[in-house]
Simulated assay, not measured.
Amino acid sequence: MRRLAPVAAAAAITALLLAGCSAGGSSDTGAPAVEAPTGGVAPEPQVDGESADAQFADRSVITTGWMSITVDDPIATAEDVAQLAERAGGRVDNRSETPGTGTQQPRASLTLRIPADELDGVVEDLRGLGTVTSVSMDASDVTQQRQDLDARIEALTASVDRLRELLATATTVTDLIAIESELTTRQAELDSLTQQRDWLVDQVDFSTLTVELVTEAVAPDPVPDDFWSGVVAGWNALVAFATWLGVAVGVLLPWLGVLVVAAAIVVVVVVLATRGRRHRGPAPTATTPQHEASRNDTPRA
């Protein structure tokens, strides 16, 4: 017991010193100690604003949007939309324009790639080009996917480096072939993962915004509801028909001339052939020897 007493005393002193150091370390942080309520679990400490902002900044979010804007001239406004995207540091990935026809209104569609931090400003600028009839935004968090790709790329990069070191120190042909085969396989997988990560980073850094530009439909002409409006409508219809008929005649006139010439040639050929037959007369009838003998045997009167 006398031998164990100094050991116990030293252990007690060490425990006290450790407890003092722990207390001093906790008091230096300046945060009050959290006591757990009886029969419960101590609540987790709250995260301050700076930590929350840091976590939000580390997130990877893909944002896609769609806007429909009614403007006076969709074709001309499409150029303004493209310039807005370029000024914001973005680009136009797809652009289609449909001019107006008698049965279809003009429209234009653009697919924009806008830097993620400039998307809100571009949307506000687009609102000033016309009347926004529809807006849709969608955000997809791909933080876990990006972290997984980064981890796999890092591990594969280290593996490829080790294989290259082994390849440099290989002494037999068998080892050399085996290492080269494995190195080729892992390098191909590394390149594939790198391409996936680069595509994901591009989707995160540049938001995709599709802009549809349309115009209001022109109101149809009112239906005539009295005598004079009926006369005016009939006259307009007559003028339109006469115009259309003149155009049709103008289109058919060259063809009619060709048909007349062809018909005249056919008539001339037929007339010449008929006259030739009349001048030659009927063809003589050939007599056979039997007919000649029978004619000679006939008694004369």
Rank of each mutant, 00 (worst) to 15 (best):
V251D: 10
P284D: 02
Q187I: 04
V271S: 08
F241A: 13
A170T: 06
R152C: 02
A240K: 14
T184F: 09
S159G: 05
S192H: 10
E180S: 11
T243F: 06
L209C: 02
V271N: 09
R275A: 14
E216D: 13
A233F: 14
S159P: 01
L259H: 03
T243A: 14
V261W: 04
V270M: 13
A233P: 02
R164D: 11
A178R: 02
D226N: 15
A273K: 15
F227Y: 13
E180Q: 12
V268K: 03
G257M: 07
V271I: 15
R278A: 09
D226Y: 06
V239R: 14
L166N: 01
A248D: 14
S192Y: 07
V201W: 10
E182K: 02
W228G: 07
L163G: 00
W244Q: 13
F206V: 00
L256S: 12
H279W: 12
Q195R: 07
A178N: 07
V231A: 04
V267L: 11
E154A: 14
P284M: 01
T172L: 06
I153D: 03
L213P: 00
N236F: 15
D225R: 15
V271W: 14
D226A: 11
L176H: 04
E216M: 11
T285G: 04
L167G: 03
A263C: 08
A283C: 05
L183F: 03
R280N: 08
V223D: 13
E216W: 09
G246M: 09
E180H: 06
A178Q: 05
A240T: 15
L166T: 04
I177D: 11
G276M: 07
I153K: 00
L209N: 00
T174P: 03
T194C: 05
